[in-house]
């Protein structure tokens, strides 16, 4: 594992450092093309000391100032900048977490309120229905009662009227009998010149009145 990694790194290093060689080659071409005196002088200067990177004159200075800037940055970052940033990020994360928690709590509350509302609504609907049904029943009972009362009254009136009609009929019949017997006795008197006892006439008349009725009924049936 480690060997592999190192070989990879080594290959990478070689590959990445490759472009330097063609660049060096091309730069000499450019310089040949230009061929100015000052450039030639510079080339001489550069080639005499090689790459400035490998001139040890400034190694100490480079390392010194790098360490100074690195330490400066390290101290400032470690003591100030990074704690500031991390505390800000932490604070935001906590804020978001608490906000999410509050949201969840409020959502739950809202759901509970909605459920209670639904229940109340259902109760109210049931109550309303009961009230309507009661009212309907009451009204029906009332109507029935009124209806019955009216019918009773009407029936009573009808009965009374029938009774009075019956009574009138009886009186009328009696009157008719009386008149008939009178007429009969008068007729008999005129015919035979003799007055008959009124009581006898009456009985005869009444028997005559009654017989046709009794006789008529079976005759009707026969017909």
């Amino acid at each position: 594992m480690y060997v592999m990694k190192t070989i990879n790194l080594g290959v990478m290093g070689v590959l990445l450092s490759l472009p330097t060689t063609p660049s060096f080659a091309s730069d000499s071409v450019v310089l040949d093309e230009i061929g100015h005196d000052s450039v030639a002088h510079e080339v001489e200067h550069a080639t005499s000391s090689g790459l400035p990177q490998f001139d040890p004159t400034w190694f100490a200075s480079q390392v010194f100032w790098l360490l100074v800037s690195f330490l400066l940055l390290y101290v400032i970052f470690a003591k100030k900048t990074l704690p500031n940033l991390s505390s800000t990020i932490d604070r935001r994360r906590k804020q978001i977490e608490s906000d999410v928690e509050t949201t969840q709590k409020l959502t739950k509350e809202a759901e509970a309120i909605y459920e209670a509302y639904e229940e109340n609504l259902k109760d109210a609907q049931l109550k309303a229905r009961a009230v309507v049904i009661n009212m309907e029943n009451d009204l029906k009972a009332q109507a029935d009662a009124d209806h019955k009362k009216f019918r009773d009254k009407a029936e009573e009136t009808i009965l009374k009227t029938e009774i009075s009609i019956e009574a009138a009929k009886v009186t009328a019949l009696k009157d008719i009998q009386a008149i008939a017997s009178e007429i009969a006795s008068e007729t008999v008197k005129k015919l035979i010149g003799h007055k008959i006892d009124s009581k006898n006439v009456e009985s005869i008349v009444s028997s005559l009145v009654k017989t046709p009725e009794t006789k008529k009924k079976p005759s009707k049936k026969a017909a």
């Binding site: 310089l31 990177q53 200075s61």
Partner: peptide, 9 residues
């Protein structure tokens, strides 16, 4: 135009 000049200290 010397490309090495930029690295000089």
């Amino acid at each position: 135009s010397n490309p090495i000049h930029q690295f000089e200290i």
